[in-house]
Simulated scan of single mutants.
Amino acid sequence: MNGEWGFLAAALAIGFLGSSHCIGMCGGISGALGMAVPGGQPAWSRLLGYSAGRLASYSLMGAVAGALGAVALPALGPMRIFAGAMLIAMALYVAGWWRGLVWLEKGGARLWRHVQPLSARLLPVRSTPQAVALGSLWGWLPCGLVYSALTFALAQGSAPRAALAMFAFGLGTVPAVVASGAAAARVRGLVQRPSVRLVFAGLILLFGIWTIWGGLPHGSHAGHAAMSSQESPVQGAGGHHHHD
């Protein structure tokens, strides 16, 4: 069971550890949604609605990526290696050591140019349904962290698993994004401290190495061996039936 669902824990951790980047990208809109409503309380329903919309978009992206991964099923090993390389690039990005993922964000900006006018029509947000709709559009914002998570989802090799991976990834980003809306300045100051970012980057780096390790030939060999051991009783039963 742990091996079967370990990819969800990994995706959740990637989202949480990359949240320092999320605050930079989405903290502004979260801060606007979290502005005090009459009575002086943060607008929690709008903050949560915004996150729910993002998670829906991420899950849709994951399903599409997973469907593509299923078509390329024999190439899952190389895809895991590529996903690990993307996570390592994200770790370097979070640490501030290398900003090579910026070119990916620039590529995604072409799509965002078509989506952004729709999101602008939803501002200012006055209701929870508006916040959900805005979050579903904002999920398509060009983001290196999301693209890194998508490659991880792609390597899952099926639409349901990839959608679950992206949902778990989005869930990992919720605490920081919601907290940045409720107490934007304080949370941004904490999460974006160099020492905190380095710790988060180091852990993402480890996830990247772990992902690459699983995509190397020895990982594939182990997977084939496990699959063969599971199939052998069935094949044996089939062979017995043939002799009858």
Rank of each mutant, 00 (worst) to 15 (best):
E4D: 12
W5T: 12
I14S: 11
I14L: 15
G15Q: 02
G18F: 02
S19L: 02
S20G: 14
C22M: 13
G28A: 15
Q41D: 11
A43D: 12
R46E: 01
S51I: 02
G53K: 02
R54V: 06
A56F: 15
Y58G: 09
S59W: 02
G62T: 02
G62L: 00
G62S: 05
G66R: 00
A67L: 12
L68V: 13
G69R: 01
V71T: 11
V71M: 08
L73D: 10
P74E: 01
G77A: 12
M79Q: 08
R80F: 03
R80A: 10
I81M: 14
A83M: 02
M86H: 01
L87K: 08
A91N: 01
A91V: 09
W98L: 14
R99N: 14
L101Q: 02
V102K: 08
V102N: 11
W103C: 11
L104S: 10
G107N: 07
R113N: 13
R113T: 07
P117M: 03
L118R: 07
L118I: 05
A120H: 15
R121E: 07
R121G: 10
L122N: 06
L123R: 08
V125S: 03
A131H: 01
A131W: 02
A131V: 00
G135T: 09
S136E: 07
S136H: 06
L137T: 03
G139R: 01
L141P: 10
C143Q: 04
G144P: 08
G144S: 07
V146L: 14
F152C: 08
A153S: 05
A155F: 05
A155G: 05
G157Q: 01
G157F: 06
S158R: 03
S158H: 06
A159N: 10
R161H: 12
A162S: 15
A163H: 07
L164T: 10
F167L: 15
F167V: 08
G170N: 04
G172L: 00
T173R: 05
V177Q: 12
V177W: 00
V178L: 12
A182P: 09
A182V: 13
A183W: 14
V187K: 02
R188G: 08
Q192R: 15
P194Q: 09
P194C: 08
A201E: 05
A201G: 11
L205Y: 09
W210G: 13
W210N: 15
L216T: 13
P217E: 00
H218F: 12
H221V: 10
H224R: 09
S232A: 11
P233S: 13
G239D: 10
H240Q: 11
H243Y: 12
D244H: 14
